[in-house]
């Protein structure tokens, strides 16, 4: 059996996740031993057939919608990776505004040349088999999910808080330092990467599926943090979530 052919595609994003892959160091050689990369813009350019499509970026134009549908048709397995692809990410901030208004704000007189639709995560447009959340992706998690795809088993993004991993790493809680961190409501899987390096959690992996709204409000009160301020912080990555909530009846989840 030949090695599975893997193609990387990017949509609206900064290509930072591809950069993470290109920079993974020694593991990259091991990964390349297990797969054939047939499409990868950061390091090469080649058209071809593929088994696994790895998607970075959000869907933000109707052209994107057509393109992702074609990729989905061709791919046996589709992986969305990075916040933009899995939860909409920072591109979702666009959804805070009226579309025409934001288009004119960005492109001024040339606005009419730039068609746009509300930002969508990939699974909100086509079915996704594997999710690797995060901005950027956490390489050990990406490798883990890739291995799952290669042996044909599901990979499930943990549905408990970043705090769980953070405690296992025995970090001092950032709230003890007077900082506000989104760890308590954000999905784990990143090994509390940011907090390990003294940065707060920005919620880039998306909210846990059963967040405690009351409890979160209590925490804010306790630490005297204004609600709009946190909403703002939360919406930085998670605005597109509102679309998921509307579609929950369809059983779609990221």
């Amino acid at each position: 059996m030949g090695k599975p052919r893997v193609a990387f595609f990017d949509f609206a994003c900064c290509e930072g996740c591809q950069l993470q892959v290109a920079n993974m160091g020694e593991d990259l050689l091991a990964v390349l031993g297990a797969i054939d990369v047939v499409e990868f813009r950061e390091v090469m350019s080649e058209k071809g057939e593929y088994d696994i499509a790895i998607i970075e970026g959000s869907i933000t134009t109707s052209r994107d919608v057509e393109r992702i549908k074609k990729i989905r048709q061709k791919a046996k397995v589709l992986m969305a990776y990075g916040s933009c692809a899995t939860i909409g990410g920072v591109n979702g901030m666009k959804n805070n505004f009226e579309l025409d208004h934001i288009r004119r704000y960005v492109y001024k007189d040339a606005a009419k040349y730039f068609e746009t639709i509300p930002t969508r995560a990939v699974h909100q447009v086509v079915p996704v088999d594997y999710f690797v959340n995060g901005c950027p992706i956490y390489i050990p998690e990406f490798v883990k999910a890739l291995k799952c795809a290669l042996i044909g088993i599901p990979y499930k993004v943990p549905d408990h808080a970043v705090c769980v991993e953070c405690k296992l790493n025995e970090n001092e809680c950032l709230y003890d330092k007077g900082l506000t961190c989104l760890g308590p409501v954000t999905k784990a899987g990143c090994n509390s990467w940011c907090v390990n390096h003294n940065n707060i959690c920005y919620g880039c992996r998306g909210m846990v599926t059963n967040p405690a709204e009351n409890g979160a409000r209590d925490i804010l009160e306790k630490y005297k943090i204004p609600m709009p301020w946190v909403e703002n912080k939360m919406n930085m990555y998670n605005k597109v979530r509102e679309h998921d909530e509307k579609e929950e009846a369809h059983g779609k989840k990221c």
Partner: peptide
């Protein structure tokens, strides 16, 4: 239950 955010801190420590 209405106050807990299920961060898991209590069990880990």
């Amino acid at each position: 239950g209405s106050r807990c955010v299920a961060c898991g801190n209590c069990t880990n420590v």
